[in-house]
């Protein structure tokens, strides 16, 4: 394992022009994608396929939330709400009105954009801690509403959602998911480097300065919110198609927190980091499954240990910090 760590890096550097722009640094994206594409050739048991598919979906969620939290610096504790809106919109249309799942995507887009505006509109002027509780509240409101309404199937939810193309094989679905998620990751990375992406970072670093420079923080934040909502909603469509069922139990506060944890664990604002964080958080509980009763205890302890070792995240956003910044970030007694 140490061999590719040293030898491989320089080898890959030689083909550096190859995929510049996929991720901040050039090669991890294609390598991961390749790994994802080759996965089923190594192991195509239903369990492995299922795990790989859910991992891909959580990657998409984490990347979407990263737009809101990482790029724009808005703490969102209710991201599962958008996930739920997407999953339920497509699920209801597909099961109650027999739409093909792909046909529901435009409606899902509209619904998530509306959800983003409804949730973001009145609340984005709030200070971040209050924004956190408001998003938490919205997350709970969406979940409870889904739990109470009849059209969403009440507590047991909707079942019998067809696959993306109508009952395709799990392998086909996995590959479709990987392609969609890869596009979503690339799209998020590109957004981050676009004009609006720069505005997001600007607003995150200093709202007043941004406003003074003619960037409207409110509109910029709303754009981040809507982008995050769209990513989450599309992930919801995949989620419903994957499980064939959607129920309120998948959108609890804990689920929102887990997505947020993927973002923070990986390194806020860093796309490769967030992808890694999502993979770790999706795979780790399954890897610990055989510990039975110890599973979540060990999971919790591991989370603490990882953060103690890498407080900036597994793979933090590229730092352009000056020595002064570094001095401000690390307090003397911690360094000692």
């Amino acid at each position: 394992m140490s061999a590719p760590g040293t030898g491989g890096a320089s080898g890959l550097d030689r083909v550096s022009g190859f995929a510049r722009g996929l991720f901040d640094s050039r090669w991890p994206g294609p390598v991961l994608l390749l790994a994802a594409l080759l996965g089923p050739f190594v192991n195509a048991t239903p369990y492995a396929l299922n795990l790989m598919t859910t991992t891909a979906i959580s990657v998409m969620l984490a990347v979407g939330l990263n737009i809101v939290v990482g790029y724009c610096g808005l703490l969102d504790l209710g991201y599962a709400a958008f996930f739920a809106v997407g999953a339920y919109t497509s699920g209801v249309l597909a099961t109650r009105f027999d739409w093909p799942l792909l046909a529901t995507v435009p409606v899902v887009l509209v619904a998530t954009v509306i959800a983003g505006i409804v949730i973001g509109g009145p609340t984005l002027r709030l200070r971040s801690d209050y924004l956190a509780i408001v998003t938490l509240g919205f997350g709970e409101i969406i979940r409870i509403t889904a739990n109470n309404l009849d059209v969403t199937g009440g507590p047991s939810g909707i079942h019998g959602i067809p696959g993306l193309f109508g009952g395709e094989d799990k392998v086909v679905f996995y590959y479709a998911t990987v392609v969609i998620v890869a596009l979503a990751v690339i799209g998020a990375a590109r957004l981050g480097r676009s004009r609006i992406g720069r505005a997001w970072r600007f607003v995150r670093e200093d709202e007043d300065a941004a406003a003074a420079m003619g960037v409207s923080p409110y509109r910029v934040k709303l754009a981040a919110y809507i982008a995050g909502a769209v990513w989450g909603g599309l992930a919801g469509v995949l989620f419903g198609a994957h499980l064939s069922a959607v129920s309120p139990g998948s959108f609890r506060f804990l689920d929102s927190a887990l997505i947020l944890m993927a973002v923070v664990l990986g390194g806020m604002g860093s796309n490769p980091g967030v992808v890694l964080g999502a993979i770790v958080l999706a795979v780790l509980p399954e890897a610990l499954r055989d510990l039975v009763d110890w599973q979540y205890f060990v999971f919790g302890v591991l989370l603490i240990l990882v953060m103690l070792v890498r407080p900036q995240g597994l793979w933090p956003a590229r730092s352009r910090e000056t020595p002064q910044d570094a001095a401000r970030a690390v307090r003397p007694e911690v360094r000692a």
């Binding site: 550097d13 550096s16 510049r20 722009g21 901040d24 640094s25 724009c72 610096g73 808005l74 703490l75 200070r127 971040s128 801690d129 480097r193 720069r198 970072r201 600007f202 607003v203 995150r204 670093e205 200093d206 709202e207 806020m268 604002g269 900036q312 933090p316 956003a317 590229r318 730092s319 352009r320 910090e321 000056t322 910044d325 570094a326 401000r328 970030a329």
Partner: peptide, 22 residues
């Protein structure tokens, strides 16, 4: 507040160049 202190490392996002040291 949170956004500013969240990641002090990224203090200068505007002038970032796309390439890191190889």
């Amino acid at each position: 507040e949170f956004p500013a202190s969240a990641n002090p490392a990224n203090a200068n996002p505007v002038n970032r160049s796309p390439v890191t040291g190889p």
